[in-house]
Design a binder for these strands. Structure first.
Lengths: 143, 143
DNA sequence: GTAAATATGTTTATTGGTGAATATAATCAT
DNA sequence: ATGATTATATTCACCAATAAACATATTTAC
């Protein structure tokens, strides 16, 4: 289980130090994809494989399926920790998440998320994100 | 599995560098054909065989099936990597995908796709896929 | 045949990715 | 608190991939 929040910087070549706390659980290979809310999702290989098999079976003849499959596969990249614990984030993924220099890596249970510091700040200060209000909605969902 | 997105240029003779990440999985010859949504599909030989078999089984009596089969077979061409990793894309295929200079090559699981940069940008900015759609699909797939 | 057009091959320059080294900061143990 | 250890940030240098330019074939049209 991934938990916590860590600030890191991305170097001029687009590399990011993975917080040391996460490294063991991640393994040295994993997948980074475009995520929801303008961040990146990081999945361990086994989680990704399941998803990959499902995506592979969607029909190429269906317009929506094509769009979805394109989004996921083209927006994915396999990463490997280099010998100082960094990964390189391709530019299309950096663009998706508005990543430049200051990044935030958070643990979200089964996955990690990578945010630009600015986006993460904005997201958390967003008025329509009142945790008290959300709690009420969660109650409706039976939590 | 092919994943990722790469920008490349097509030279004045209609040749395109295949991204080095894809070369091993593609083999040194493979099939390029007219794809859906104004791009080109690229299949390794074995994936093409699978597709070919499916196409062969479509009923000749069905008008749409005939059109679809013609589209795929007539638009197909076998390509071979030259000794610096390039392929030549015939002009009828380039026309189909509006390919001129700036191209984008994406991995889409079992195949690659080649887009003109302009078309790819347009496709992604159109409402082919909203965030809500993505979220719904993700839930369906249990991501 | 020859010239033009197209295809194929080679060379060089440029870009971008990778690895290593160093510097700074944070954490831990004593 | 102090020094030792680990983690993170930054920089530099090298190598591989790609782009561009150029050269040589091969085909096609006349």
């Amino acid at each position: 289980m991934f938990i916590g929040e860590y600030n890191h910087t991305i170097d001029t070549k687009g590399r990011l130090n993975v917080p040391s706390k996460f490294r063991e659980a991640l393994g040295d290979h994993f997948i980074v994809t475009k995520g929801l809310d303008n961040c990146l999702f990081v999945y361990p290989i086994n989680e990704w494989s399941i998803l990959e098999n499902k995506l592979k079976q969607l029909p190429m003849t269906n317009r929506d399926a094509r769009a979805f499959v394109r989004f996921f596969f083209s927006g994915a990249t396999e990463c490997e920790l280099d010998n100082q614990g960094r990964i390189r984030i391709p530019s299309n993924l950096r663009d998706h998440a508005f990543l430049e220099k200051e990044a935030v890596v958070i643990g979200v249970g089964t996955r990690l998320e990578i945010w630009s510091q600015q986006q993460w700040t904005d997201y958390n200060s967003d008025e329509n994100l009142s945790y008290d209000d959300i709690a009420v909605k969660m109650q409706e969902l039976g939590i």
